[in-house]
């Protein structure tokens, strides 16, 4: 029996995407969103893709990975090198993205097969080490121009970032709601129990890890083609931590949370721009506050769903 894809909720999601696209377009055209806010929007969009892809690994599958910046750098440098070789146009960005996806999935497989048999802290250390290896390799290669990095033209506007944001969100949500996604959640809840139920835990962990890596590499491509300079320093351990902060801040296991926290952190960063001296203090303090009052993150594991809204709406209807 073919499942009906044309449900009310799917229609509402599509409507939301189209409306927000035209709303942003309108706001840009009438000048409310100026160039500064557009740059901030790009940062936020890329951060959301990074956060939801890491959330898939950490929040849904329960595997603590600290190598996300490594995968991002694979995407960024694949794009950077190809744009340098082929000249700056949109088609070279897409070829770079494809190469990045291919490379990062191969690398993710190589890393995942041995390390995902590890648990907890050991996995964190292994992925951390791997992220640093990628960075040092890039730093010492001729084609990546070593520590000086690559200077690239700006080839993207917000529309493509928006498109890939929608695609990435669709991929992670669809994966989480599929049978393998459910298996990943069971691995997170109790690995031994799910093994007893006949779930091949390593297989599902690898699946989630590779999908996460591919999305991170796409984010890297978007970064490289909109932020002019890529340097090995941009993808250090600190970058992985930044992404992790967004995930934990929003709530592990909640994609809605990753959206909200990437937005909040982006807006906070921009609005505090003119208070340079105390910006980091305020930022740090807010993180501490969140951890004291909501250790599970802003949204915990709450997920925004149109089906829930509809249910509530229908209940009210029935009551009245």
């Amino acid at each position: 029996m073919a499942k009906n894809r044309f449900t009310k909720t799917n229609f509402l999601w599509l409507l939301l995407i189209i409306v927000s696209y035209f709303l942003i377009n309108l706001l840009i055209n009438i000048g409310i969103i100026n160039k500064v806010y557009q740059t901030v929007m790009l940062t936020i969009g890329i951060n959301i893709i990074l956060a939801i892809s890491l959330n898939l690994i950490i929040g849904i599958t329960g595997q603590f990975s600290l190598g996300h910046a490594g995968f991002m750098s694979i995407g960024a440098y694949s794009t950077g090198v190809i744009v340098k070789q082929m000249g700056g146009n949109l088609s070279s960005v897409f070829i770079g993205m494809a190469v990045g996806i291919l490379l990062s999935s191969i690398v993710a497989l190589i890393v995942a097969i041995p390390t995902l048999r590890l648990k907890g802290d050991y996995l964190a250390i292994a992925t951390l080490g791997f992220g640093e290896i990628i960075r040092i390799v890039i730093q010492n290669m001729k084609i990546t121009n070593g520590a000086a990095g690559l200077v690239l033209p700006k080839l993207l506007d917000w529309k493509l970032v928006f498109l890939f944001l929608v695609i990435s969100t669709f991929i992670v949500v669809a994966f989480t709601n599929s049978a393998p996604g459910r298996a990943c959640i069971s691995v997170r809840e109790d690995e031994i129990a799910s093994e007893t139920m006949g779930i091949n835990t390593t297989k599902y962990k690898i699946m989630a890890f590779v999908i996460g890596a591919i999305l991170a590499s796409i984010a890297g491509t978007l970064y490289a083609s909109s932020f002019y300079v890529i340097k090995p320093d941009n993808f250090s351990f600190n970058k992985s931590i930044d992404i992790l902060v967004i995930v934990v801040f929003g709530g592990m296991g909640s994609y809605t949370g990753s959206f909200v926290s990437a937005l909040l952190i982006g807006i906070l960063n921009t609005s505090l721009q003119s208070f340079a001296d105390i910006r980091t203090i305020i930022y740090g303090a807010l993180l501490v506050m969140i951890m004291i009052f909501r250790p599970q993150g802003i949204l915990g594991n709450y997920e925004f769903k149109f089906s829930n809204l509809l249910k509530r709406f229908n209940k009210k209807e029935a009551r009245s």
């Binding site: 100026n34 160039k35 500064v36 557009q38 740059t39 901030v40 940062t43 970064y223 932020f227 002019y228 300079v229 340097k231 941009n234 921009t270 721009q273 003119s274 340079a276 910006r279």
Partner: peptide, 21 residues
């Protein structure tokens, strides 16, 4: 008009855009 770019090239892009505007 002073801005801090946090020694970060991503932040530098935002600051440059802000200064231009």
């Amino acid at each position: 008009v002073t801005y801090d770019n946090k020694s970060d090239s991503t932040e530098a892009v935002t600051i440059a855009t802000t200064l231009a505007s």
